[in-house]
């Protein structure tokens, strides 16, 4: 297992949903690699397609309602070419998933140990004693103080933080190479959030797993991620290392997003507001820069007709050429600004 190998290679993947009989792209032409031993954060606002990307990798879409193209190469297998039974050999075994709402993600009528050992039922040949032992081991690994007691409880008897630990235990039960965490801490208090992120990081180190962390919270990204991909309107607009994204953000959207966060030193100022709205799936323009309508003061010729990714530094890519001409309307500095 080499640390730098791409074991997940997402090539030109688009996922379209059927709305009123027509298919509309929720994500379009995504190219992304995930390595072992890293946390890749996918960050963006609701509707940007980050969760769709996760469920596409997991093969959780109803094939009648979606149309998926491209290729997802996972350790030499194209996941998108698999049928449901084939996919089931990967789901839960080599790819684990963590969900946003830990209460609804657990079956309310089943005890915790049954819900964890269910994943072992399908991917291991352990005896029931061994499974029970493994369940307790997993609960201990995710930081549950009294595993034996928790194992016999029902989801509603646990706190939100404990439920999320159980979800993580399910995701890592078979030591997957890839863990997809979709907003794993959004429903939790900040102190619990910090603990859960610690658990995730520890597991990534222990299992040498690659983690895709999907979140809208830039703070969580800055604290946790090794690499970051920023998504807007179904596309990746910028990707790079966490340092590159937070210290030298390039794309106008990334910069705007960072500026709209409440900061320490502007308590009495208005927050920066990005103009306009994200277009709905049905109204998404198929050509041109999708972010252009939200920065109307940037001249049209600054944008590419068919925006592509441009490398600005090793590992740091930005969509469209407009980043070279971007400035905030209330600030005079043009072009790139270092923080």
């Amino acid at each position: 297992m080499t640390n730098t190998s791409d074991f997940l290679d997402i090539k030109d993947v688009s996922t379209a949903f059927k709305i009123d009989g027509h298919f509309y792209d929720a994500i379009s032409h995504i190219n992304l690699q995930v390595h072992h031993d890293e946390i890749l954060a996918i960050v963006g606002e609701s509707g940007c397609g980050k969760s769709t990307l996760a469920t596409t990798i997991m093969g959780l879409h109803d094939p009648h309602e979606t149309r998926i193209s491209g290729e997802i190469d996972f350790e030499g297998t194209n996941l998108l070419a698999l049928d449901d039974a084939g996919f089931n050999r990967f789901r839960g075994a080599k790819i684990g998933m963590i969900f946003q709402d830990p209460l609804s993600a657990l079956n309310p009528l089943k005890r915790i140990d049954d819900q964890i050992s269910e994943v072992l039922d399908y991917h291991t040949t352990l005896s029931s004693d061994e499974k029970h032992h493994r369940v307790l081991e997993l609960l201990d690994q995710v930081g549950i103080v009294n595993p034996a007691r928790t194992a016999r409880q029902f989801p509603h008897e646990l706190s939100g933080g404990m439920r999320q630990r159980v979800i993580i235990a399910i995701a890592i039960a078979c030591k997957p190479d890839l863990i997809i965490a979709d907003e794993p801490t959004t429903a939790l208090d900040v102190t619990i959030q910090a603990q859960i992120l610690d658990v995730l990081r520890a597991i990534q180190k222990e299992n040498h797993a690659g983690i895709i962390l999907i979140t809208h919270d830039l703070g969580v990204v800055a604290e946790t991620a090794d690499r970051v991909a920023v998504m807007y309107a179904g596309q990746i607009v910028e990707q790079g290392s966490a340092e590159q994204i937070f210290n030298q953000p390039q794309h106008p959207y990334t910069r705007s997003l960072l500026r709209s966060m409440p900061q320490r030193d502007d308590e009495n100022d208005d927050l920066y507001v990005i103009r306009g709205n994200v277009p709905s799936l049905q109204k998404m323009p198929q050509t041109g820069d999708r972010f252009a309508p939200r920065i109307p003061w940037i001249p049209a010729d600054a944008h590419e007709a068919q925006p592509t990714m441009h490398q600005v530094a090793p590992g740091h890519e930005v969509r469209c050429t407009c980043y070279q001409h971007f400035y905030f309307p209330d600030r005079t500095t043009k072009g790139r600004v270092a923080k």
Binding site: V190, A194, L218, G219, A222, E223, E243, F246, N247
Partner: peptide, 10 residues
């Protein structure tokens, strides 16, 4: 527990 956006001070 508030996440900081300062990557260097992580």
């Amino acid at each position: 527990a508030i996440p900081e956006t300062n990557v260097d001070q992580r």
